[in-house]
Simulated assay, not measured.
Amino acid sequence: MNILQALFFPPEQPGGVSSMIPYIQDRFQQMGWQMELFSLPKRVRGKGQEEVVFETFDYHAFEGDPLVDKYIQTYRDYVWWTKLRLKKTYDIIHAHHPIAALVMKQLYPDTPVMMTIHSSYERELILNGKIEENGKVHQFLTAIYGELEARVDKLLTVSESFRTYISPYVKEAADIKVIPNGFDEKRFKPIAHENEVPQLITVCRLVPAKGIDILLHGCAELKRRGHPFVLHIIGDGPIRPELEQLAVELDLYDDIIFYGYMLHPEEFMPFFDIFVLPSRAEAFGSVFAEAALCWLALVGTNVGGISEQIDDGVNGLLVPTEDPIALAEALEKLVTDSSYRYNLARSGWDKAKQVYSLQRVIAQLKKVYVNTLRQAE
C-alpha cells in the first residue's frame, strides 16, 4: 500500500504532529508499506492563482479580513505546490491540516483522503486575542469543519474532548474516530538524578493560550511560601518579552531560565522533576505524554486532552484554568514531597507507555487505512 502523509508544516517543525509523523512513516516502512511525507515550504508564498471553491459555503462572504485572505491564499499556494511536486498516485492520502486535506481531495478526487484534526486554530486565535469569538474569522474557520465532513472520506481527531468541541460544526460527530497521538518510547530515556532544588520545566510556544502568565503568578506564590525551585521555559513566541518583564516584576527573574526554541526538548527533559503547563485550551497536549515518558510529575489544567491524559492525584495533578493559587498549591505538593512526586511520575510513565505508545497508533491507523481502502473499492 502506498500512502501519502500530507502535512502543513515541514516535519522538522516542533509540535505533536510534526514530531510524530516521521516515526509513523518509519514504522510503516519497516512493515513494507510505502509512505511519503509532503508539506508546504515556508518559502512558497503568493504563488497560487487558482480560484478556491468550497461545496458547503461561499467564502467570498468573509473576504477582506487579513486572516481569511491569508488562509485562502495559502490554499492556492498548496494547490500550486502540490501540482508542481506530486506526479504519482497513492492508495490513500492522510492529511493533517484542513488545507492539506481539501487540496488533496480537489486534486485526487478518486483517492480516499482522510484527515486528522489535531487542534483548533480558531480557538487558539481567540485565546491569543487575535480574533473575536463569533466574529467573521471565527465563523469562517468553523465552517471549514463542515466542508471537511462533506468532502473527505474519513475524519479523525486526537481526543474525545476535541470531538465534542467540533460537534456543533458537523452533522455526524459520532462518525469521527478518535486516535490519540502516540510516541516512540525509544526516544525518551528517563535518567536517575537527584536535584537538591526542584527543577520545573515547561515546553510550549509562548502565546497567551498556553497560560505562562498564570504559571509565573503561580510560581511567585510558591516563592512567597518559601519553597525554592528553578523554572525552565523552553520555547519562543511573540509574548516572550512580556513574560520576561512579568518575571522581573514578580521578583522571579533569578528563578527562571528562558531558553528559547529547542528542536528536541525530550533529550533535555529527563533531568528535571516536574512538568507544568497551565494551558487555557488543548486539543491533546502531546508534550504531557512526552514529559510522562521522561518520568516527570505532571501538572496541567483541567481542559481538553490534558484532562484525558491526567487522572488527578493518580498520574498527575489537574488545576482550574486562570487560577495561580490552585497552581501554586499543586506545585507545593510536589516540591515538598519527593516520594509523592516520584509515585505520580511513575504512574504517569506507566499510563503514557500503555495508552500513548506509537505501536498502538500504528495498529489503529493500519486498521483505518485497510477499512478505508476496502470501502473505496
Rank of each mutant, 00 (worst) to 15 (best):
P198K: 07
R151K: 14
T111C: 12
N195C: 08
Y145W: 12
Y169E: 00
L127Q: 11
Q139Y: 00
E160A: 13
V137Y: 06
I201A: 01
A174D: 15
K136G: 02
L141T: 09
N134Y: 10
T157M: 09
Q106W: 12
I212S: 02
V137C: 07
H118M: 11
S161W: 00
K186Y: 07
N128T: 04
G129S: 05
G182E: 00
E160T: 13
Q106A: 12
L107T: 10
F188V: 03
V207I: 10
V203H: 03
E194T: 14
D184K: 01
H138S: 13
I117E: 14
V203P: 04
S119L: 12
S161H: 11
I166N: 11
M114I: 15
G129K: 08
V197S: 03
E149L: 11
E160M: 11
P109Q: 12
M114V: 11
L206V: 01
P168A: 03
M114H: 04
D110E: 14
R205G: 02
L200F: 03
V203F: 05
K136Q: 13
V207A: 13
G135T: 09
M115K: 07
R163N: 08
A150Q: 08
M114N: 05
G146S: 09
V137G: 07
C204K: 06
P109V: 10
K210A: 07
L148I: 09
R123Y: 04
E133W: 03
Q106M: 14
R187S: 01
G146D: 05
D110N: 15
I126C: 04
R163I: 10
S161F: 04
C204S: 15
P180A: 06
L156G: 07
P168R: 07
S120K: 11
G182P: 00
R205E: 03
N134Q: 12
Y169K: 01
I126K: 03
I126M: 10
L206A: 02
E133R: 13
L107C: 10
I191V: 15
Q139R: 14
G211W: 08
